[in-house]
Simulated assay, not measured.
Amino acid sequence: MSSAAELLSILTFPAIDPVAFSLGPLAIHWYGLAYVAGIMLGWLVARGMLRNAKLWPNDTPPCTVSHLDDFLVWVSLGIVLGGRIGYILFYDFAAILADPIRAIQIWNGGMSFHGGFLGAALAMAFFARRHAIPLWSLFDIVASVAPLGILFGRIANFINGELWGRPSDVPWAMAFPTGGPFPRHPSQLYEALLEGLLIFVVLQFVGRLLGGFRSPGLITGLFVILYALSRVTVEFFREPDPQLGYLFGGWLTMGMLLSLPMLAVGVWALLRARRAAGPRS
């Protein structure tokens, strides 16, 4: 087995400046650009899907492109607010109680996917009710493009050198600036490929080529199931958050724990969609 020093000489973490560029005193970070890129690209893909009437039940898109344009603001707020509140509640609650001002210090901690997921779901529910849009079809639209945001977000995590993996001697392991001298799994890239790119391809295939959008809720259930399974898998390679460590003195992490109810909800949504579709002739 290769020593840590030998591994470090094979693969070095690419020290990319977390600040993409500056506009005077304003620093634009890759992490912020990742959110913008994921939301905007998802919006463009969703617009294309709405223009293809054959994808939807009764050849009728669930909403107009104009609705989708308005919804962009709602879902953006849901993701950002839900992601931050979720991180505070799930990962940093004790520190916030001790120092409440830390809640707005986004450089201390970050965003929680599970919180962003709940925030986006609430935004969708309010928007669908307000505009009389079929809720499950709106869920499907967002679920089918959400992996793009995950893809860009995890790449930004890698650029920032954060949320790194557990120590490892695999040939592609690398030492992160804040992760000590030992080579680690680049688990951010695992998540980008698994939770982001792979799930996006699968959902687009099922939705566009297998008629998944014609069964409202099917794409949503599939997304939630695939994300939960992917997240649990990656958690075996990702270093747990230091303030939490392993839960209940074992191997369970907070990421795994939060993914289990997601898995149950996903299975329920998938079964519901299949029941609603009725027997196939």
Results as ranks from 00 to 15, higher is better:
L135M: 15
L50H: 06
P242F: 07
I150R: 07
I159K: 08
L257Y: 03
L189Y: 05
G149D: 11
T233V: 04
V206Y: 03
I96T: 11
G82I: 11
L8V: 00
D140P: 07
G278T: 09
E191H: 01
R275Y: 01
W43P: 03
G196I: 11
G250K: 05
W74F: 13
A277N: 06
R275A: 14
T233F: 14
Y31G: 00
P183I: 12
K54W: 03
L193G: 15
T253K: 01
T253E: 09
W43Y: 14
L198P: 03
S66M: 00
R47M: 05
V170E: 06
L72H: 00
V19I: 15
F139L: 13
S137W: 08
T178A: 14
R47C: 05
V232F: 12
S259L: 06
V206C: 12
I10V: 07
L122R: 02
G165E: 11
P18N: 05
A123N: 09
W74M: 07
P61L: 09
S144I: 06
T12P: 00
T12E: 13
L151Y: 04
A175P: 01
A46P: 01
A143D: 08
D70F: 01
A264H: 02
S22M: 05
S66Y: 03
V224S: 08
F248S: 06
P100W: 07
A175G: 04
L7I: 11
A273P: 00
G266Q: 08
G221C: 10
W268R: 13
N58D: 15
Q243Y: 01
G110Y: 00
R280C: 07
P177V: 10
T64K: 01
G149K: 08
G109C: 12
S259D: 11
L244I: 14
F93N: 03
W136P: 03
M111N: 06
R214E: 06
G110H: 02
N108F: 02
S22E: 15
V232C: 14
A173L: 05
H131D: 13
R130A: 15
R208G: 05
Y227F: 14
E235G: 09
D241F: 09
P62T: 05
L8W: 01
V234H: 09
G48V: 01
L135Q: 14
L194G: 03
E6L: 11
P183R: 13
P279C: 06
L258F: 04
F205Q: 12
K54S: 14
H67D: 15
Y227V: 13
F205K: 06
I101D: 08
P134S: 14
S66C: 01
S168Y: 05
G119F: 08
A132K: 15
G207P: 00
A228G: 06
I199T: 04
P62I: 03
V75F: 02
L244A: 09
E235W: 05
P100T: 09
P18E: 11
A121S: 14
L118V: 15
R214S: 04
F139M: 14
P61F: 07
R84V: 10
P167F: 03
G82M: 10
G110F: 01
V232Y: 04
F200K: 01
S281P: 15
A94L: 13
